[in-house]
Design a protein around this nucleic acid. Sequence first.
DNA 1: TAGGCCATCTGGTCCT
DNA 2: AGGACCAGATGGCCTA
Length: 183
Amino acid sequence: MEEPCYSFDQEDSTPDFLFWDQDPNIELQLDDLLLDYCSLEDPSCPWPSPTHPPLAPIGPPVPPSAAAGVAGGAEADSSRPPPASLHRRAANVRERKRMLNINSAFDELRCHVPTFPYEKRLSKIDTLRLAIAYIALLGEILLSGCDPKSYVEGCLRNGLQSHHQATWNTSDLTARLSWVKWD
DNA sequence: TAGGCCATCTGGTCCT
DNA sequence: AGGACCAGATGGCCTA
């Protein structure tokens, strides 16, 4: 089994909102923290990690209507929306981290799903569907007891005539293998 | 320009 | 009470 691309568990457990009341630059520090995390990549993965664009500034913009009920106080400057509460911003940071964690799992899964060299980076939905099909393929090979390579070759040959043929279509219709039924 | 994909924010719900 | 999880809304980026 290969090592995971990276694990968020290695991050320190300090609550990110701990110093918000103390350091005016904490938002920049949080950005740096998350950007550091985003910069970690698995060199074995053929794709870069384009899923981690520069993070948006933490906190506002928050729709005034949404923030009003949470922040509980109006700013003197009416031209700017009131900042979200500390609890809300902490929740936002946690949510971003959670999504980053999910995305890292997707990146790891992409590394295990076979694709053609010219296949562009798989989307999340394509990654899941191809992974399902790939697992089904491996199961079929196990049950058949045949040599995996010859089994796949046979499937590819027969799939051309079989009504059981199913293609492993991705969004750009470039990845295609035969015979695995989706339903 | 439309559509697909994505990150982010947000409020709600459930769990510890 | 606080955190995890989820789904909807929104806006940005990219490609055909």
